[in-house]
Design a binder for these strands. Structure first.
Lengths: 152, 152
DNA sequence: TTGTTAATTCGCATTACTTGCAAATTAGAA
DNA sequence: TTCTAATTTGCAAGTAATGCGAATTAACAA
């Protein structure tokens, strides 16, 4: 991850202006380990910066992703999630409450096959589905944000 | 996979009617290894059964998925894909043309961790991104259906 | 400080994909 | 053949995200 100061330099080096919106979104994202959606980030940002536009959130998140400052992940369950953790890692998704947790690559076999059968693999993403520790307790399932697409 | 006859029994056992639409969609899906979208399947189905509704395609695909006859997969690149292959396997997605290929589980490390850190993993999905053999040839990239969300 | 200008934000319209709903149709049992 | 619940269909509506143009503003220069 990058400090706000470093971010400023990255922005300038790319001819991008350092706006209050961008700074806010960047820091909110780094304070937030929940892999928020654009909408969720918008909610939080609105509290500190009333009037900020959802359009700007999408715009900025897209730019940060292009700059390699964050990952854009779609688990096929509602909206795209944003992850500032650019390290090699995977994800666990709770099928009950929708919570997402990073899965450190060391705890999962490292998959980095070069190529096979003619196609060149450039990236491998592993998604673990199941029940989080909270929802795994039979009597206290969080009815949180349920999966919409129920993959299976 | 199931033969049309077996399917009929499965349907009956669940009080579901064996309609021409369902039979057509089921067989089209099994003839088709491209992991089509609902829309794509609708196009093909329309040729053999003019007037069939896109709504019915979505409906039927959803039912088949609930019955465990097919998988519903969202790669975060446009529409949901449908896969009649219920065996343990993963997927390769071409970032250039959007083509999808099954990746037999034997060629990838078998990931079936029971649980860790309190959450119960019930399913593991691995997505390999890269360039397919066709697009991997520098001069002949298929400009096919480009990725829309470009995950990274 | 002030001015200039290209970058950015904002809001609204629009697209893409999918689902809800109600009326019309039909498979399967009697 | 008749009956009825299941199914299909078309259209409206919903969600997520993007396109676009007008208004605003960060950053640089004078």
């Amino acid at each position: 991850m990058r400090s706000p100061t470093e971010l400023a330099q990255v922005f300038r080096s790319k001819q991008l202006k350092l706006t209050p919106q961008r700074q806010l979104l960047f820091s909110l994202l780094h304070e937030n380990a929940s892999h928020p959606t654009a909408e969720a980030l918008f909610e939080v940002a609105s509290k500190q910066m009333p009037g900020i536009s959802l359009r700007t959130v999408y715009q900025t998140l897209g730019e940060l992703a292009e700059m390699g400052e964050l990952q854009l992940i779609d688990f096929g369950v509602g909206a795209t999630r944003f992850d500032p953790n650019m390290g090699d890692h995977h994800h666990f998704v709770c099928d009950s409450c929708g919570a997402i947790r990073d899965v450190d690559i060391t705890s999962a076999p490292r998959l980095r096959s070069g190529s096979g059968d003619g196609f060149a693999v450039e990236d491998v993403n592993v998604v673990f589905n199941g029940l989080c520790s909270r929802c795994n307790q039979p009597n206290k399932r969080s009815p949180g944000h349920q999966a919409k697409h129920k993959k299976k």
